[in-house]
Amino acid sequence: MSSCTSVPRQKQRRSSRRSGLTSGRDSQALSALGDFQTLPLEIFQMVLNYLSVKDISMLSMVSKTISGRLINYISTSSGSRRLLLQDFHRPELPARREGASILEHYKALGLLLKRCTLLLPTRDRLKYVHKVLAGVSCFKLNGCASPLHCLGLQCYGVFLQILTAGWDELECHRVFNFLWELSNLARKVQTVVSSKPGSARRLELRIRLYCRGVLLSPGSHRSDCAFWLTRILKPWPMVNQARLLYIIFGPVSSRDGEKRGAPGEEIPPKNVIWGRGVMGAKGAKMERKLRRGAGSGMSRERERDEPGTGAGNGNGMSLEQEQERDELRTGAGNRRGMSREREQERDEPGMG
């Protein structure tokens, strides 16, 4: 009889322990929310609409529970509209945003996502950031119809600069590989460096703007720029590296941005980077010199060392013609010397 009564008591103790554990976890989560525990989730998100991005970023550091709620808020449609501003063709935000620069806004947004994803692995952080920013077309290499007058890539660059600040080299390698595969930059760069100069001028311009705006963001430290530039150039041979450097940092035509097509579409001039203008001619000439490379130097040395070729003479004469010319010069010099001796004998008295 006692054994029958002990079984229900054990079950009752286990159920009480489980209920105690769950209630303890719930109480911890509620205590982490603080005064926000009395607010429904919808009201909490409405409160966030009245806070600046910097204030939301500070709020994310209060507790892990609040950080999780902020992550859910950013993923909602109202949070995306609130945080992912897309006024990239106007440098200043509307008056309701206190006239702040859109670049400053995306710096603060980068810090917000950096703090919200602080406890996640690098791979998961990148996936979450890509999921949040996937709807911004101007952050893509071919996303904007007017890239010359768009701040989208620069905003993306400062966002990534703040997000990856303080990361170690291995994490930055993962970031670069993620961006390299996401934008399919390897195939596009291969198309540019293997084609004739100026034949893919639109793609050249977009690669230039993407590399300068996103990877080599203005205001970055010199060491960071050196790291990203090394990663860009490393997969390519030296000739393609030289051409890629010229595309990224080379001069641009003064007509850049003046020739326009349909509304909302920017058509770069034919000589933007490699075209038929002065800079395009210099670029093509440099390209030909680099392609000759060390092979041309070896051929010139071989021609200079071989007799009778006349390649290193600079006057188009063969070796036999030079020898005949030297003999004629020697004979003329001897005749001039004999004539001087006869004159001296004639002028001296008592001689002859």
Score class of each variant (00 low, 15 high):
Ser3Pro: 02
Ser3Arg: 10
Gly20Thr: 00
Arg25Lys: 08
Asp26Thr: 00
Asp26Glu: 13
Ala29Tyr: 07
Ala29Phe: 01
Asp35Glu: 11
Gln37Asn: 02
Leu48Pro: 00
Leu51Cys: 12
Ser57Met: 01
Lys64Gly: 10
Ile66Lys: 14
Ser67His: 03
Ser67Pro: 01
Ser75Lys: 14
Asp87Gln: 09
Glu92Met: 12
Gly99Gln: 09
Ser101Met: 15
Glu104Pro: 14
Glu104Ile: 15
Lys107Asp: 13
Gly110Gln: 11
Leu112Lys: 04
Arg115Pro: 04
Arg115Ser: 06
Arg115Phe: 00
Arg115Lys: 09
Arg115Thr: 03
Arg115Cys: 01
Thr117Leu: 12
Leu126Pro: 05
Tyr128Ile: 06
Lys131Tyr: 09
Val132Asp: 11
Ser137Val: 02
Lys140Val: 15
Lys140Met: 08
Leu141Phe: 07
Cys144Arg: 05
Cys150Phe: 03
Cys150Lys: 06
Cys155Val: 04
Tyr156Val: 02
Gly157Cys: 06
Leu160Ser: 13
Ala165His: 13
Asp168Thr: 00
Leu170Tyr: 15
Leu170Trp: 14
Arg174Met: 13
Ser183Tyr: 06
Ser183Ile: 00
Ala186Thr: 02
Arg187His: 06
Lys196Glu: 05
Ser199Ala: 07
Ser199Cys: 03
Leu203Gly: 04
Ile207Val: 06
Arg208Gly: 02
Arg212Ser: 14
Gly219Lys: 04
Val239Ser: 11
Leu244Val: 08
Leu244Arg: 10
Leu245Asn: 06
Tyr246Ile: 02
Pro251Ile: 01
Val252Arg: 05
Ser253Gln: 04
Ser253Arg: 10
Ser253Val: 11
Arg255Ala: 09
Glu258Ser: 09
Gly261Asp: 07
Ala262Tyr: 01
Gly264Met: 05
Glu266Phe: 15
Pro269Ile: 01
Asn271Arg: 02
Gly275Leu: 07
Gly275Pro: 02
Arg276Gly: 12
Arg276Trp: 12
Gly280Asp: 05
Gly280Pro: 03
Gly283Ala: 13
Gly283Pro: 09
Lys285Leu: 09
Glu287Ser: 06
Glu287Ala: 08
Arg291Ile: 14
Arg292Glu: 15
Ser296Ala: 09
Ser299Met: 14
Arg300Cys: 08
Asp305Ser: 09
Asp305Lys: 02
Glu306Asp: 14
Pro307Phe: 13
Thr309Asp: 13
Asn313Met: 11
Asn315Trp: 03
Asn315Ser: 10
Ser318Ile: 15
Leu319Ala: 12
Glu324Lys: 04
Glu324Met: 07
Asp326Phe: 03
Thr330Asn: 10
Arg340Glu: 11
Glu341Val: 00
Gln344Phe: 08
Glu345Cys: 14
Glu348Cys: 11
